[in-house]
Design a protein around this nucleic acid. Structure first.
Length: 129
DNA sequence: GCCATGACGTTCC
DNA sequence: GGGAACGCCATGG
């Protein structure tokens, strides 16, 4: 297994219970800024008998990236709720409150986080242009 | 080795 | 605030 993957998993294991981190942050902490997509890859490649709290990793919009219909998404919400993470009415997590590490979100406002969500919705429509 | 794909992110209309 | 385009990195065909 590549060092990146190991680093990614290690970073995810460091996420405290009741907190969440974005793919971008995890990628950055793992030493590969911009490799957010790769983080998703690494998590999807996790074996069933893993000790990595993958559910604490969400996208920059504070939402679960998986399709809400997917059983993994349902599981992820359940696990987060069990740890005390509250979801806003829109189904998003307040990164300013639960984001980890807090400094990362404090210094990086990133007001237009939902852009990620819009991109995904576009792709779901099948509009590849 | 090139092309397509994806649990993503940032910038620009 | 919402939508579209472009960029990034690793994997699989």
């Amino acid at each position: 297994m590549n060092p990146f993957y190991h680093r990614i998993y290690r970073v995810v294991r460091h996420i405290p219970k009741g907190r969440v981190a974005t793919y971008g942050i995890v990628a950055r902490l793992a030493g590969r800024p911009g490799a957010a997509r790769t983080v998703g890859w690494a998590l999807s490649a996790l074996p069933e008998d893993n000790d990595v709290p993958w559910w604490r990793v969400i996208n920059a919009a504070g939402r679960i990236s998986l399709s809400t219909q997917d059983h993994s998404a349902v599981l992820q919400r359940a696990l987060l709720l069990r740890e005390g993470v509250r979801f806003a009415p829109g189904g998003a997590v307040n990164l300013g409150t639960y984001g980890w590490p807090a400094e990362a979100y404090d210094s990086a406002p990133a007001a237009h986080k939902r852009a990620a969500a819009s991109r995904r919705s576009r792709r779901l429509k099948g509009l590849r242009t």
